[in-house]
């Protein structure tokens, strides 16, 4: 099951990587508008793994505490989209977006709401792009602010369907030394639906 090719073949993985590239390109453009500087993206990583193994896949040394936003989406395929970065970068990101328009003393107070809205914009840009390519409609739930231990975040109790499609791309804003991740977590049923969508798109 850990072998991606059991579920998605090489062409399907390549197509999914390209779709993620397009979605993240749109998200990066939104973030770039917000911080008014260039946002760099890494090559997408796609893995089908046990959900408990997700933290190990996020970085060589995953941060202990992460901060970010989770947005659950539902449609032909469903799952969670997450924007994550290490906790200490949170305020830097808020400062990069809001600039000097908010007094420093109010910035901390605004942090949670600002991060939630930034996450909402980034994740929706990416999700919307994927929905548009697939000619689907995805309903997004209200974004949820996260600030917790990374192991806790991906800890699942039930063993029924805890293999997930991990789509990961990291972005960085050089001037602020901020690196973050966008991750999609989908169960096997949704992965199968994505595979069908890709096959239709590729005429397979």
């Amino acid at each position: 099951m850990n072998d991606n090719s059991d579920i998605l073949n090489e062409i399907q993985l390549d197509a999914l990587g390209e779709l993620l590239n397009i979605g993240m390109g749109s998200a990066a453009a939104s973030l770039s508008t917000m911080v008014q500087q260039e946002v760099l993206l890494t090559v997408p990583v796609i893995r089908i793994i046990h959900q408990n193994d997700v933290p190990k896949q996020l970085d060589d040394v995953p941060p202990q505490k992460v901060c970010g936003v989770k947005q659950t989406f539902r449609g032909n395929f469903s799952g969670d989209a997450l924007l994550l970065f290490s906790e200490e970068k949170s305020l830097s990101l808020v400062r990069a977006v809001l600039g000097d328009s908010i007094p420093l003393e109010e910035l901390g107070e605004m942090e949670e709401e600002a991060i939630t809205e930034i996450g909402n914009i980034i994740l929706n840009a990416c999700l919307s792009s994927l929905a548009n390519i697939f000619k689907e409609h995805l309903d997004s739930e209200i974004p949820q602010y996260l600030n917790e231990d990374i192991e806790q975040l991906f800890n699942v109790d039930n063993d029924d369907d805890c293999f997930v499609l991990l789509l990961r791309m990291s972005f960085s804003i050089a001037k602020q030394d901020i690196t973050g991740y966008v991750t999609f977590i989908m169960d096997l049923e949704s992965i199968a639906k994505i595979r069908t969508q890709i096959n239709n798109m590729l005429g397979m």
Binding site: S26, S30, N120, I121, L123, N124, A125, L127, S128, S129, A131, N132, K135, H137, L138, S140
Partner: peptide, 9 residues
């Protein structure tokens, strides 16, 4: 004025 930029919306 929305982040949800899906064509359907």
């Amino acid at each position: 004025l929305t982040a949800n930029i899906q064509d359907t919306i």
